[in-house]
Nucleic acid binder design. Sequence first.
RNA 1: UCCCCAGUAGCUCAGUCGGUAGAGCGGGUGGCUGUUAACCACCAUGUCCGUGGUUCGAGUCCGCGCUGGGGAGCCA
Length: 483
Amino acid sequence: MQEWIVPGGYATMKSKLIQGVGMTARTRINILLADGCPGGSAAIAGWVRTVRSGKGITFLALNDGSSLECIQVVADTGLENFTVVSRLGTGSAVRVTGMLQESPASGQRLELHATEITVIGSADQDYPLQKKRHSFEFLREIAHLRPRTNTFGAVFRTRSALAQAVHRFFAEKGFMYVHTPIITANDCEGAGELFRVTTLPLDNLPLTNGKVDFNADFFGQATGLTVSGQLEGELFALAFSDIYTFGPTFRAENSNTPRHAAEFWMIEPEMAFADLMADAALAEDFLRYLCSFALEECSNDMAFFDAHIEKGIIGRIRAVADSSFAMMDYSEAISRLEKAPVTFQYPVSWGLDLQTEHERYLTEQVVGGPVFIVNYPKAIKAFYMRQNDDARTVAAMDLLVPKVGEIIGGSQREERLDLLQQRMLETGINPEGLWWYLDSRRWGSCPHAGFGLGFERLVMYITGMENIRDVLPFPRTPRHAGF
RNA sequence: UCCCCAGUAGCUCAGUCGGUAGAGCGGGUGGCUGUUAACCACCAUGUCCGUGGUUCGAGUCCGCGCUGGGGAGCCA
């Protein structure tokens, strides 16, 4: 008999069969299923997914979140508390010690014959998760319990793995991680409505000449939650060369769509001494890295997505990981769309922004893979994007991918002070509040570029989930801040 | 915010022409020596989203409201 109890913490999980001490000593089920051998003893703890009882024998499917797979626990009348165990409800938390054996039945390689089962937390018949398919809409109403389901287990394991892959990618490339502020006084970053942050009494606001006196507020000025870390990120790029941000972002827009949330996570790299082409190259490396990472590190969960969420997603992600991305000028994209043998719902003409239907046509029909669209008309892009020599376009890029359209948007930034000031005036941005941003163009300015990627949209793209509310642990959307 | 669709048992849904409420799953009880979303038998499910109206009679038709979903806009 093999004894697997060895000391070790969470960090060494992959290399130790059992972690923790005393009551916490147990093997994670994914490790046990992958590395366990018949004949060894093992201790596990987890939540019961199903109970199947026969006369004198009961099977428990136990899951601890470490993988999609459950381990089959076999309980028989040799157990002191067999009657209790055979009547366990779905959702109960139990700790099991026993002996690993080869399973005589098909469906699993190993099973754990219990010598002791401790009921740690019982679950009665009111437990909302049943042994059946539930709609995602229903599961959103029980967001506190849905991580215990197959789909959400797979989604949030993949989300965690991807978040770590983001950091790993940038660390490998020598990018510095910057924590840009969550609370900001920039009310004109140009990217949507911001949530107000205040300690003023809302039922008795201090007024001066009929207007709210923000001098009396906590920060002595009007503040809100960040809608982007880009502007501060640029300042750090102009000191550390290559940086990225990865943090929460807030938009108070009343958007009710499967792709928008009021609180989401955004990744924004910024590179000094870099132009638009370097920016696109980084974006390509980045997306391909993340796709490969998901396929390799989350293969079980990806297989689940392919089987149950979106057929063929593994092939699609593999194709992106292996492809070389195309690049097309905005002007060429427009002429391709104008010549397209299909009718679009929205008009196509130089100067108009591309709609999702246009983006998908370009990436799916014209290119047949990921494509950067570059050099957009300046009138439809943000003030900080660098003006091209033609005086009518800016060095902006959108990365379009099949099925979703735009997934990454970025640009080379306007590093020339006079042109930046001119664009601020043209677009109605008040330079006063951004004096520090302008200062960065005054001393040691240099060409620099960056992009933004909404993390949830990445997770949606890679998992095939179609609603952003189902890739956020506890989504915040209009009228929803529960849990 | 605009447009469209939906709301019936714990869940997923059916409910015909307006005539007084159903199925599957889940749950309970019992049975079954090895099950795989176990199986077999029996049992119990209900503010038909709310509100007002039409009608002899409304789950069903009409108005208003609430909630959810999808599409659009905004965008990541």
